[in-house]
Design a binder for these strands. Sequence first.
DNA 1: GTGTTGACAATCA
DNA 2: CTGATTGCCAACA
Length: 107
Amino acid sequence: MRVGARAVDDYTARVLDVVDSIPAGRVLSYGDVAEYLGEGGPRQVGRVMALWGGGVAWWRVVHADGSLLAGHERKAIRHYEDEGTPLRYPADGGTPRIDMRRARGFG
DNA sequence: GTGTTGACAATCA
DNA sequence: CTGATTGCCAACA
C-alpha cells in the first residue's frame, strides 16, 4: 500500500542510485535516467537532482544536447577533465559541452 | 480545481 | 547555430 512519504521517496532513491552507478568518464541525460528507470520524466529527474543531487555525482547528469548545468559549469568541467570525460570545445572558446556521441550511456 | 514553473526533450523554421 | 513550439510529469500558489 505505499502511503505516506518516506524520508526520501522511492523514486528519489532510485534516481540517486542510477546516478551513483554512472562510471567516471561517462554521463547520462535526464531523459536517459528517466527512461532507464522506466517511470517519471526528464523534469522529475531534474527535480530530484536539484534537491538531492548534492549527494551524488550530479555532474554526470547533463542535458540531452550535452550542455552543462547552468551555474555549475565551472565545477562540472573540472570534474570532466579530471575523469577524462570527452568534451567538445567550441572554436570561439565558449562554454564546452559534453561529446554525447561518446560519453552518453554506461559504455 | 486551475494556472504557472522547472537542473528537460524532440521537432521545426 | 538560435529561437519558438509542443509534449511531458510533478510541485506549488
